[in-house]
């Protein structure tokens, strides 16, 4: 059985359990069955299934994480150059009673909201807003927490005219030695340079069902095979799941999700994330900033070493 069939069967069992006048022992039996099926389903999760979970409209978005993880969030707008990109939600807030800067790529929860937020596709103004907030964080010695959730940088005419490439390059350049701790959380979808611009961090943590890749599978299939409809096949060869990235040493930690994704039981995810962030921020707080920056450089410096020989 594939993931979809299993999911259907589990839903049926759940209904059975609720609807019928059952003895406790029978109910227990159904619970057992559901547990086994869930286990099987999780093992059968294809990268494409994870992508579907990650892209689901009801999956918690950056604004939900900000609401649950931080207090007194004050949103700050604008790049001071051209405009304000609403696909980036940035500002200052308390995390565990300490001020932090939050810079998040934010998708919407409905079509209207998504149109307003450009489906999380960031324009040059967004990257420049992020840069401005990052510089501000550096000045006031606030740690930065970035949240990644984007299919990629916006491929529009205006974005090109206003220097999409330059804006992303400057993010990579600046974040590589910004003198304050940076932690990056990939909550759902990380695609292309548009996501990487927010990922030059001391620690990168990914949700279990989140995906991160060189390009969206649709774009990948279109470039490599000139056929967008082969996206599912692309997803299977792209090694884009959190486990693939952990294995390659790109990310540092995976936050476990309940069956069906963070959308099914959000507190479980936020609590583990909170614990992780608190621990790592405390650790980073003990180190000298030069040491942190040096380690960040070294981390990216060593990426890709297994892929060549002299």
């Amino acid at each position: 059985m594939n993931f979809e069939e299993l999911e259907k069967k589990i839903a049926q069992l759940r209904i059975q359990k609720e609807m019928l006048e059952l003895e406790d022992s029978k109910r227990f039996q159904i619970d057992q069955e559901i547990y086994e099926l869930e286990k099987e389903a999780v093992q059968n999760l294809e990268p494409w299934d994870r992508l579907t979970i990650a892209r689901a409209l009801d999956r918690p978005k950056a604004q939900d994480y900000i609401q649950y993880l931080f207090t007194d969030f004050i949103e700050l707008h604008g790049d001071r150059r051209f405009g304000d990109d609403s696909s980036i939600l940035g500002g200052i807030a308390y995390f565990e009673n300490k001020p932090v800067t939050v810079i998040a790529q934010s998708k919407g929860k409905s079509l209207e909201e998504n149109i307003q937020k450009n489906f999380g596709m960031v324009s040059p103004e967004g990257y420049r807003k992020a840069l401005r907030l990052a510089k501000q964080a550096e000045k006031f010695h606030r740690p930065i927490i970035t949240i990644v959730d984007t299919p990629g940088a916006y491929p529009g005419m205006g974005a090109e005219e206003r220097g999409q490439a330059q804006a992303i390059a400057e993010c990579l350049y600046t974040f590589s030695d910004i003198k304050t701790p940076v932690i990056c959380v990939v909550i759902s979808e990380g695609g292309s340079g548009g996501a990487l611009a927010f990922s030059v961090a001391d620690h990168i943590v990914m949700l279990e069902n989140a995906v991160y890749s060189i390009l969206s599978p649709e774009g990948f299939a279109s470039i490599l095979w000139k056929d967008e409809t082969r996206a599912k096949e692309a997803a299977s060869v792209m090694k884009m799941t959190s486990f693939d990235l952990k294995e390659k040493g790109i990310i540092d930690h995976i936050v476990k999700e309940p069956f069906g994704g963070a959308q099914k039981y959000f507190p479980m995810v936020t609590e583990e994330l909170r614990r992780y962030l608190a621990k790592e921020l405390e650790e980073l707080g003990k180190k000298k900033i030069e040491q942190i920056v040096q380690k960040r450089y070294q981390k990216f410096r060593e990426m890709g070493i297994p892929a060549w020989k002299m």
């Binding site: 390059a169 990579l172 350049y173 600046t174 590589s176 030695d177 292309s192 340079g193 990487l196 990922s199 030059v200 991160y212 890749s213 060189i214 390009l215 990948f220 470039i223 490599l224 792209m238 090694k239 884009m240 693939d244 990235l245 390659k248 790109i250 960040r296 450089y297 990216f300 410096r301 990426m303 890709g304 892929a307």
Partner: peptide, 22 residues
């Protein structure tokens, strides 16, 4: 980026940019 190398190709963007920053 080189599609065949996936994420390892993507992170080269960060690696080269960091070196140029230094």
């Amino acid at each position: 980026a080189r599609m065949q190398e996936g994420i390892l190709s993507l992170v080269q963007m960060a690696k080269t940019s960091a070196a140029i920053k230094r």
